[in-house]
């Protein structure tokens, strides 16, 4: 196979990685910063896709991005309100919202499980028309996604440096301390989840527009994929690194995740095995650094045992 084709495959992996990367950034905020495992991610992703698709179908492709983000943040607000104001456990709040969003999506699409965007203008078709005749004409999808991911990452980094952003990070590491500094953790949790879900919604919206169709089940398993990508990113840029590096790491993780899938498919692995591959990736990403840190200990033990043997 020529290098051209490998680049083509790599590009699909990169594009998918960037689309998913927005969801991974969302989890970076909610899971790594706020310490909330947001299980409404799957539903919120699909909600963003539904709202984005419907807005684009109505003829407003540019409006579809803020619309999907708004829908995502409303979903995040409900998840946050359930856990901070109504005594629902955090994990359960996510699951409940995730379940309810399915019905909401069906209601939004008028009881249709698939919608086609093939004839509607999307942000991608707009970019394609705008770039026509320039040297970048063939790369419109990549450019749109790069811009979206970069903007989201930069915004997130800047936000986490503000007072509110720091308060959100502090809520994640020690809610009691935050409370004693007279900051309301319920408020910081709400803001954090609204923002992270806005990113998830945007991710779903771009995914639907990129594949030119909406499917009511398209978000299924997204939270697992995003968590796995987050952990892979953490291997390269872990907790002791700066926030911008860690944010870049999450995007890298999302890309690497897709790259592994691509290689697995190239090796003619049946698609049903891919779930096992992603499970293996998570285990390697978590246990790899741990095992690496254990190597000196093992060596020392080995030496000690060796000495013990000769003595």
């Amino acid at each position: 196979m020529s290098i051209d084709k490998w680049l083509g495959l790599g590009q699909t992996a990169l594009e998918l990685g960037l689309v998913n990367g927005l969801t991974v950034l969302a989890l970076f905020l909610s899971y790594s910063m706020l310490n909330v495992c947001d299980l409404s991610t799957d539903g919120c992703f699909t909600l963003g896709a539904a709202v984005g698709t419907l807005t684009a179908l109505a003829g407003y492709p540019l409006l579809s991005l803020p619309a999907a983000m708004l829908a995502g943040s409303v979903s995040g607000f409900v998840t946050a309100a359930l856990q901070t104001r109504m005594g629902v456990q955090s994990l359960l709040a996510g699951i409940v919202v995730n379940t309810a969003i399915y019905s909401l999506n069906m209601a939004l699409t008028g009881n249709r499980s698939t919608l086609s965007l093939i004839k509607a203008p999307t942000v991608f078709s707009m970019a394609r028309d705008a770039l026509k005749g320039t040297p970048l004409a063939g790369q419109y999808a990549l450019l749109v996604l790069l811009a979206a991911a970069a903007l989201a990452a930069v915004f997130l980094c800047l936000f986490l440096r503000t007072r509110l952003g720091l308060a959100i990070r502090a809520t994640g590491s020690n809610a009691d301390m935050v409370r004693s500094s007279s900051i309301n953790p319920a408020f910081t949790t709400t803001v954090g989840l609204c923002l992270s879900n806005a990113l998830t919604g945007l991710s779903g919206c771009l995914m639907a527009q990129q594949q030119k169709s909406f499917d009511v089940n398209m978000g299924q398993g997204m939270v697992t994929v995003a968590l796995a990508s987050l952990l892979i990113g953490g291997v390269f840029f872990g907790k002791n690194r700066s926030i911008p590096l860690r944010a870049a790491g999450t995007l890298l993780g999302a890309f690497l995740f897709r790259l592994v899938y691509m290689l697995a498919l190239r090796l003619n692995m049946p698609a049903f095995m891919l779930k096992a591959v992603s499970a293996a990736i998570v285990v390697i990403a978590i246990s790899g650094p741990y095992l690496k840190s254990q190597i000196p200990v093992l060596i020392r033990r080995g030496r000690a045992a060796g000495k013990g043997g000769t003595a």
Partner: peptide, 21 residues
């Protein structure tokens, strides 16, 4: 190939087809 109802995998399978010409 079988996409197992996963939209992302579906895209990767199809891009693999395109790469295989």
């Amino acid at each position: 190939d079988n996409a197992n109802a996963d939209g992302s995998v579906m895209q990767q399978i199809i891009s693999n087809f395109i790469a295989e010409e």
